[in-house]
Amino acid sequence: MTSDVTLYHWEPNANSGKPMLTMVEKGLSFNSHYIDLLAFDQHKPEYLAINPMGTIPAMTHGGRLLNESTAMMEYVEEAFPGPAMMPEDAVDRWRVRWWMKFLDQWLCPSFSMIGWSLFIGPQVRERDPEELKAAIERIPLPERRIAWRKAIYGLFSEEELAESRRRVDFGIGKLEEALAKREYLGSSQYTLADINLFNSAYGLPSMQPDDVNDEKTPNLMRWLRAVARRPAVRETWTYSRVPRFAERILPLIEEAA
């Protein structure tokens, strides 16, 4: 590929999926560089040279580095041609940004905490204890070090998991209300906020079928199918290497098609 854009990403979901889906929606070609989160690729010196925070995703455009997935999405939107992924109206734009912050800092960390306690931790825990200890020591951000320690050693308190579950249940209700009010999240068009949400919410119907379904959350389901139907979503999933993630989204994509 001849693109001067390279995306360093893990699975095409959550934070990695945000800039990736934005790039594909804009029709931007990029070099894909898969960083295996479960192998701690993100803390290796080669990657820290690119993103000293040791978090995924990161991208380079020419010689310039970008991290922080939501800010990256806005960059991709502004720096490249293609369909507009932000609304025209200033208040709609405010609402899109508000939702992205609410997702990034309030709702998705709760999804993430539950996911890490159920999946990431158990997956990694089996490895050599000394190796894991060393791996944790190498994590640059103190918050991420704490997160990994909790996931690996199962140190989440019942209280914090309960609060995360409360936020997820509450968030599902609020998303349903928001999507009943407007066709997309925060505006009447498909925007970065929808990309942001979809990357964390696509698994809800399969993981929480009692809470997210056509009866209880018809608008959320309508919206999930509308986004899943987009060719760009299908394309991003060709970058997946962990079957367990793909298995959660493919039924939704098939069903929506």
Binding site: H61, L66, A79
Partner: peptide, 17 residues
């Protein structure tokens, strides 16, 4: 400039978060 805007938003995010 879009890159400077990215840098500013990432900077503000750090301050906010």
């Amino acid at each position: 400039d879009p890159y400077a805007r990215w840098e500013m938003m990432a900077w503000c995010r750090w301050m906010i978060e």
